[in-house]
């Protein structure tokens, strides 16, 4: 497959895939929470654009609705909520020192190669565009997981979780050319519920251990040391 022989739609989708991948990397290397949330919002925006492009080129009107939903939820509501949480707890001044940032970044890059390698035999029969988009979305998911592993703050964990969901969403848009409306609405609702639930969790974690640093949760360990 050569990129020159593809149509404009494919080129745009591939560029979007690359940019989504980039935002995942940016999140991975981010030590400041507010910037992390900002990059997350940008990733949401990229997803919205991808959905809109897909809707336009496939002539699939209900995809527009899902684009609007993505915009409202992932670009505006969830980032806003997280930002408010950060400002309220006064955590925006902390810089989280990432232990071994270079190793994490290189690990991320090799995850990308790995996900490509894993998907290669599965999708050999379908179009190569699908393979690429799926590889990128799988690596976005893995990177989200890595983000959760490498960061300490609970809010970073939420962002990581949401970006895993973003990866899934991207794969769904590109690979199935739009799911049934019900499924999309369901997913959007799920995300919303998850966000609200996380908000409640934050409240409880903070009131019980006075911090959102998940490493402090080790105190809850009941095994005597």
């Amino acid at each position: 497959m050569n990129i020159e022989s593809q149509d404009l739609y494919t080129q745009i989708i591939l560029s979007m895939a690359a940019l989504v991948g980039l935002t995942s990397f940016l999140m991975l290397g981010q030590g400041r929470l507010l910037r992390l949330i900002f990059v997350f919002a940008i990733q949401g925006l990229l997803l919205t654009l991808t959905t809109a492009v897909a809707a336009y080129s496939l002539g699939n009107h209900h995809l527009y609705i899902s684009a609007v939903l993505t915009l409202a939820l992932k670009v505006i509501f969830i980032p806003w909520m997280l930002r408010r949480e950060v400002l309220k707890t006064n955590m925006h001044r902390d810089v989280e020192t990432l232990a071994n940032q270079t190793a994490v970044m290189l690990g991320g890059a090799s995850l990308m190669v790995f996900s490509y390698y894993v998907l290669h035999p599965i999708v050999q029969t379908t179009s190569p565009v699908m393979l690429n988009a799926l590889a990128v979305s799988l690596s976005v998911m893995l990177l989200g997981m890595l983000l959760m592993i490498s960061h300490k703050q609970a809010i970073a964990h939420v962002v990581g979780f949401m970006s895993i969901e973003n990866g899934l969403f991207f794969a769904a848009i590109v690979a199935t050319k739009g799911m049934p409306m019900v499924v999309e609405l369901g997913i959007a609702f799920d995300v919303l519920v998850a966000a609200v639930l996380f908000g409640i969790f934050f409240f409880h974690i903070r009131s019980s251990i006075d911090s959102l640093d998940v490493d402090l949760m080790n105190k809850l360990n009941e095994v005597d040391k």
Partner: peptide
């Protein structure tokens, strides 16, 4: 070093996306 490490990462991603997205076989 972090700044240039990021530049290197971008270069690496560029190359990976060339191999993965543009010229895969």
């Amino acid at each position: 070093q972090e700044y240039l490490g990021f530049a290197y990462l971008l270069g690496l991603l560029g190359m990976l996306s060339h191999i993965i997205l543009e010229a895969s076989r």
